[in-house]
């Protein structure tokens, strides 16, 4: 309740700043969920492939690592949007 009363007492500019900060945090959270799911799926399938064909593990790990880094780029883009809007 204290937080609501604090929000109600905000002036126009402060309210805009508060909305920008909360929106940026929300956007960063959303931007981190997708890559998290993607990395989980990617690594899970890679582990299956490595267990099924150990002789191809080097190739699988190479592509897995690049896949992880590319997927993580999405989260980094979300993070950059967050620091430009919210920080």
């Amino acid at each position: 309740m204290e937080a609501f009363s604090y929000l109600a007492a905000l002036t126009g500019d402060e309210e805009k700043a508060a909305q920008a900060a909360s929106s940026a945090g929300f956007a960063y959270g959303l931007a981190a969920i997708g890559p998290g799911i993607g990395i989980g799926y990617l690594v899970g399938k890679s582990v299956e492939a490595m267990a099924r064909q150990p002789e191809a593990a080097g190739m699988v790990r190479t592509t897995m690592f690049l896949g992880i880094a590319f997927t993580e780029a999405l989260a980094l883009i979300g993070f950059v949007v967050f620091i430009l809007i919210g920080l």
């Binding site: 990395i39 989980g40 690594v43 582990v47 267990a51 790990r61 690592f65 992880i68 989260a75």
Partner: peptide
């Protein structure tokens, strides 16, 4: 990221999977 994958894959692939997922969160 590379150090995490390389060190945990020698122990078990399950640990590597967990380390990659939690490593993602920790690195972020």
């Amino acid at each position: 990221a590379a150090g995490l994958v390389a060190s945990t894959a020698r122990i078990s692939l399950g640990l590597m999977m967990g380390a990659v997922l939690f490593g993602y969160l920790i690195r972020l």
